[in-house]
Each structure stands twice: as structure tokens, then as C-alpha cells.
Design a binder for these strands. Sequence first.
DNA 1: CTTGACCCCGTACCGTAGTCCGGGGTTTAG
DNA 2: CTAAACCCCGGACTACGGTACGGGGTCAAG
Lengths: 137, 137
Amino acid sequence: MDMKSLTIGRLAKQAGVNLETVRFYERRGLLPKPPRTASGYRLFPADAARRLRFIRRAQELGFSLTEIGELLSLRVSRRTTSADIRTRAEVKIADIEAKIRSLESMKKTLRKLTRVCDGCAPVAECPILESLDREDA
Amino acid sequence: MDMKSLTIGRLAKQAGVNLETVRFYERRGLLPKPPRTASGYRLFPADAARRLRFIRRAQELGFSLTEIGELLSLRVSRRTTSADIRTRAEVKIADIEAKIRSLESMKKTLRKLTRVCDGCAPVAECPILESLDREDA
DNA sequence: CTTGACCCCGTACCGTAGTCCGGGGTTTAG
DNA sequence: CTAAACCCCGGACTACGGTACGGGGTCAAG
């Protein structure tokens, strides 16, 4: 139990999540199984909190836990070739860019709306529908 | 039943959602209650499909149905003042900008990863954890 | 050496967002 | 006129992402 390890309770507090959520993510494989003390207590490395915060943020961006698992597994190692990782990373980048474009489009519409508000011109229709409306999924 | 109205089934197909989902959104108030035929069939205006597609996209960006309802209600009318709408729109813009920043950060990390792949330098750690990791919610 | 805070585990339960079912009327194409 | 295809409704069911519960062991302060 050196200073660098965290019990599950401390980790949960540091990351701002429920303790049960930590166990749940461990079961789901989003958090690597931590070493245990002789009595069975989990001892998480300090950077587990960073991983938890990453998961939370990614969720707010509309990624499912399964997709987050895929993001977290993006790294080069003996088992995975560079080319494989590269391809998978590029797919994720494309997903992300699509999300950014949708958000930019929503933002533009909302900005237009605030300008209309300044001009005091009443808009009866819902202007945000203009955004996010062209083709593809 | 003019050409411009859609039965629930046609609407669902056009928007690419399940028919039950349309009824569900109507119950949730995300879709305005459509007029009915004498026999009770719903007749949706043609632009209901646009609204459905907006809802789906916004969900992919991590907005809950409740938040989507708030976005859809952003418009100026007798009941809502320009100033009120303006304030609410600005809050939403700030939310959106935060999402965009997080996504840009993820994207940057993934780009770095693809460059590493090109250079064939193996990375054992999970580099994406570098992103989305500073302060605030 | 006890008491309160913390941890273990499995299982049950919850909210959100749908999705399905089934018994019944309606519409439309043959 | 009838059969297929479509629509109505209420209510049950599902999947996902947690969250709570409860019975038990552990650890640290007094």
C-alpha cells in the first residue's frame, strides 16, 4: 500500500464517480483488474482516476461504453500491429469529425438565433431544425 | 389527406426510425401532436421527418431527450421573451463548445497515435488518456 | 480489543429510451 | 367484397448504464 495506490473508495472520490461504478467498469473491462492486498482489497494505480474521467467525458460526447472500450484499446503492442491500430484510429477520427461538424452546425444555428434575439425579430418556427439536417447518418 | 401529410408509418420510414419511436416521442412532447383523420389516424406535416432526424443526431452527440426538448423549444414567441431565449441559447452554445473542445482533444491524440504508427514506434501505454483530462466537468 | 469506516461479493433494483404484443378498427388493391 | 397492409391503444418487455442492499470480513484510532 504505497502512497501511489488508491483504494476503491478513494479512487471513486477522486474521480467523482460512485464506488459501485468503479466495480462496474472493472467488470466491463474498462478498467484493468487491479492488484489486491492479501485480504482482497483492490489497489488501483494513481492514473486509474484519469481513466475514469476519460470514460465520463467520452460518455458525454455520445460514446457508448463499448465504443469507449475500443478507444481505450487503441495502442500499439506486441499483439496489435501498427497498421491495424492506424486503421482503427482513423475510423475513430472520422467519427469524431462527424460529431464536430454536427455540433458546429448546431452552434451556428444557435448563434443566428441569438442575433435574431438582438434584433428583436420574433421567430415562430423552431430555427434549430435547420441544423443537423442534411443527408447521411 | 393531402400529399404533404404523412401517416405514422411513412414518417417513420422516411426518418429511419421505428414507428413506435414516433409515438414515444409524441408522448414525450418532442413531436407536436399531429391532427387526426376522422378515424383517428395521425397525419404528420412533412417536416416532422426533419425533426425526427434532428432528435437522432442530437442524441448521437450526447444530448438526452430532455435536453433535446429544451433545444427544440428555443424560439421566440409571445410567451417567451427574446432576452430569455437569448440566455438559454447562450447556455447551450457554451455546452456545445465544451463538447467540441473535448472532441478536438480526442482527435488530436488519435492523430498523434497515427503518426506514431507511421514511425513504427510501439506505444505500450494508452495514449488517448492524455486527452479529456484537465479540470472542470 | 472494540468501534466506526472501509472493503468484499452477489444479487436486486432503478431510470432512460425505446420496442414489442395483441386485440381491435381502417384503407386499399385485386 | 375480401385480404393484405396499415393504424389505434394500453401495457408488458428489453437493453444499457448504473445504483442500492445486505451479510460479511478488514483496518486504524482510541
